[in-house]
């Protein structure tokens, strides 16, 4: 759901850019409090993995595709502050290097996916994993956190399009919500599989997500 140039008007992209800049500054401050030497390569590797995975669009239905967002993946394994920096880095590389997401929409895309997507994944995971115990409970929590992150990001993108006068919210929301509810299922499945797989490769053996208050 990378918004291209031309979909957002000036007031919308300037205000989302300002909100994103504030959220990023705060994330850097919080990351700084907990990031140690051992975590540095993990952040790089997680960002690289999410970049690669985002290239792999999977078909959902009716000639439409989706791809991993990765907000929940990074949040569950490395905590929300690091996850915000990771998804932001992926979006910046995609925008500057690959023309995926417009430069004027970069602030909006960061706000939707790296800020709201991560925050939603974090809150849903934190609440559900406190209630649902055991390995199965953890997987269900991860699945729903991933699904919700995609849904929240798409709802915000819709709001920004509407605020820009590109399309009325009441018209766009049912369509955006419908497709992203489906894409969110893919997000949930991939996130559960990848978290379980790469946890065994040392991604969860440290105090990695202690800062997130999870696990």
């Amino acid at each position: 759901m990378h918004i291209p140039d031309g979909f957002l008007d000036a007031k919308t992209w300037i205000s989302t850019a300002a909100l994103s800049a504030g959220a990023l500054g705060y994330s850097i401050k919080k990351s700084r409090e907990e990031l140690d030497e051992r975590q540095v390569p993990r952040l790089g590797i997680m960002a690289a993995f999410i970049f690669a995975a985002q290239m792999v669009n999977f078909p959902i239905a009716g000639g439409t595709s989706g791809h991993l967002l990765g907000a929940a993946l990074a949040t569950v394994l490395l905590g929300p502050w690091n996850a915000c920096l990771i998804i932001t880095t992926v979006l910046v590389v995609q925008c500057l290097g690959f023309q995926d997401g417009g430069i004027t929409a970069l602030g909006g895309n960061i706000f939707n996916m790296a800020v709201a997507g991560v925050l939603t994944a974090f809150l849903v995971f934190k609440i559900l994993s406190a209630v649902l115990k055991g390995a199965a409970g953890r997987s269900v929590s991860i699945f729903l956190a991933a699904w919700a992150s995609v849904f929240a990001a798409s709802a915000l993108a819709t709001a920004e399009l509407a605020f820009s006068g590109t399309v009325p919210f009441s018209v766009a929301f049912p369509a955006m919500a419908g497709w992203h509810a489906l894409i969110g299922i893919g997000e949930g499945v991939i996130t559960v599989v990848v978290v379980n797989f790469i946890s065994r490769l040392g991604f969860a053996d440290s105090k990695a997500d202690a800062g997130a208050g999870v696990n």
Binding site: M1, I3, N57, F58, T64, A172, M176
Partner: peptide, 13 residues
């Protein structure tokens, strides 16, 4: 091997 179909936002657009 990725699907070349439009993604959710492109499809809605």
């Amino acid at each position: 091997l990725a699907s070349s179909s439009p993604d959710g936002l492109e499809r809605v657009a």
